[in-house]
Write a protein that binds this DNA or RNA. Structure first.
Lengths: 350, 350
DNA sequence: CTGAAAGCGCTTACAG
DNA sequence: CTGAAAGCGCTTACAG
């Protein structure tokens, strides 16, 4: 492998000078610079990033922790983060926590060992242990998509309560009266806040169904309403929940589903029991994944601003890296969502 | 940050000894080992992987290049690779080529600069330039999911021709006579081979529609049959292609769609024109993504062995890394697919 | 503007 | 079994 020394020799300068022209941090005469640049090109030299990182304490690498990278929603989110990282000249080290606290912690350590400049984490099972590790190691980090239970950490999330309210209100506008909610894991702020928004909207409309034990912490959230079902943000979970819900209470005339993946499962379950989405059962999802546009019928959903979420998260991380002493507790960003009207709510053909 | 020297001081030994117990590569007295281990625990010391890599020339990091990581099929494939990598104690550096040759090359360089132990690549647009870079830099690498046009490189792929044949034959068994094919980009071996399998099955059954300019290279593949449509492995592409196809030729009674994502778009298009999948139009997809189980109607598809593909790819890469002089040209693996019968083919309710 | 030298945090012959 | 020392490939004061 050709190294800096080879370039120096070829250009007839000292190795240090090669670094100087590489980094442009030091004055170099034009004539010398040209010779070195020529040598670099001729030898097709590329500096060893590891050695450089060791010397500079900057790896230009970002650790990204995702709870389930094969889930299309997270895949879209991760892809957006990667784009934003690339724009900041950062390469992504990817960790799929697989909703396992041990695995999440393992990746966090692997990231730290490799001296990532920072991490963007969507924690699953191991939020508390994970964040403790991050704090202990003083790693720059921002929590994306969800908030840790009871911890004050830099975060970028969407207005889950607001989005869920809009979704539910839209269902109410369509004349629905018995509106259920199928959401994700009760330990996730995103899942709980979406249930909360649904609950609040119902209360405002004078409808029954509310009561989510709002503001609860891990373990405390209970499906206090028979119309509310906690599960997981997966297709299977949505399928199971809807099957169960419709069996238990056929009078349900609408469902706010807190993720598109679950909504796809719900659509399947609804077809199984012979109901017609958009007609005798209105449905609104959450996420606005690319796929939501192609379901049959088309899914009405709450669209998240992926690119913006990613850009803001990377930006926030950049600020923390630049100024480690910055007040991280004050870094919280909540982005708005948007209602995308399609067919399952009743706006279009069933 | 606590370093090896701190541990050494605390344990009352030389820094070298800390390395010895860390790596277990050198004899150390039990008593000393215990003292060092205690110091490591007390100081919560973790070795700097960058420094270690610089000294050992092994980064325990793998570069994974994906053409579109937000596409659910690739997300599942990437996730499988990550699992396999983890099992081999490798962390994944992820690059989303975004079907852009320049971006692919950029990631390849970023991987090399960071001294990845090897790369697993699913090339999009820049197969040739990308592989040239890999060869020039002598990076251990294996091509996953597709073969480069005209290049002999280590690869792990699925039996695309065979799978497509099975899919098409199944359609024939259902009594279909006018069977179209919607596939991916004509420059991709996977897309071409699936079209080829379809064509061969038609010929075997004495049906019209064949002719894919089989064995073609980039740019030469032409949609020689009006029943064959090249596009891209995305939902939108599938939607567009099916809309166009059904408008042009309403007599089509079946479609073999070469990817599940496209099939989801096809399902949407079919609903738009008022046809009924599984009844007056049979459909079989390809990939066996998790989502395919939840479409309405349920998608019959050719299932790929994700975990096995990933494990074999990582294993092959491991062999190349272990023995750089190994005969890479001889490393080719083709795994079988499986027909998953559901509803869109006519086996189940429409 | 240029270069010798120390340092980044490890590994690993080699000598003792 | 233990340790001093060279080396991995860079960066960056510091002196000239």
């Amino acid at each position: 492998m050709v190294g800096r020394v080879d370039v120096a020799r070829r250009a007839g300068v000292s190795p240090a000078v090669v670094s100087y022209v590489l980094n442009g941090s030091h004055p170099v005469s034009d004539e010398t610079r040209l010779r070195v640049e020529a040598a670099i090109l001729e030898l097709d030299y590329r500096p060893n990033a590891l050695a450089r990182s060791l010397a500079t304490s900057r790896s230009h690498t970002l650790g990204l922790l995702i709870p389930d990278s094969s889930n299309p929603y997270f895949a879209e989110l991760a892809s957006a983060v990667e784009d934003a990282a690339l724009a900041s000249n950062l390469v992504v080290l990817l960790g799929n926590g697989a909703d396992d606290a041990g695995r999440e912690l393992g990746y966090l350590r692997a990231f730290r060992d490799r001296q990532v400049d920072g991490v963007i984490a969507v924690f699953g099972a191991g939020f508390e242990e994970g964040w403790r590790e991050i704090s202990k190691r003083r790693m720059p980090a921002v929590s994306l998509d969800r908030l840790p239970p009871g911890l004050d950490v830099p975060s970028v999330v969407v207005d889950n309560i607001g989005g869920a309210r809009v979704a539910t209100e839209h269902l109410v506008e369509h004349g629905r009266r018995r509106i259920a909610c199928i959401t994700g894991g009760a330990e996730l702020s995103s899942a709980r806040d979406r249930a909360r928004g649904w609950s609040e909207a119902l209360a405002d409309a004078g409808l029954v169904g509310g009561g989510v034990a709002a503001g609860t912490r891990v373990g405390e959230a209970q499906p206090v309403s028979p119309l509310l079902s906690y599960g997981a943000f997966t297709v299977d979970s949505g399928y199971t929940a809807a099957t169960e819900l419709l069996r238990r209470d056929p009078s349900v005339d609408a469902i706010f589903v807190a993720s598109d993946m679950q909504a796809m499962g719900v659509l399947r379950a609804v077809a199984d029991v012979g109901r017609t989405p958009g007609a005798d059962l209105a449905i609104v999802g959450f996420d606005g994944t690319k796929l939501s546009e192609y379901t049959t019928p088309r899914l009405t959903t709450i669209t998240q601003p992926y690119a913006q979420l990613a850009t803001e998260a990377v930006g926030m991380l950049g600020r923390i890296i630049a100024d480690p002493a910055s007040d991280r507790a004050a870094m919280h960003l909540v982005l708005p969502t948007e209602l995308t009207r399609r067919d399952t709510c009743g706006c279009g053909p069933p």
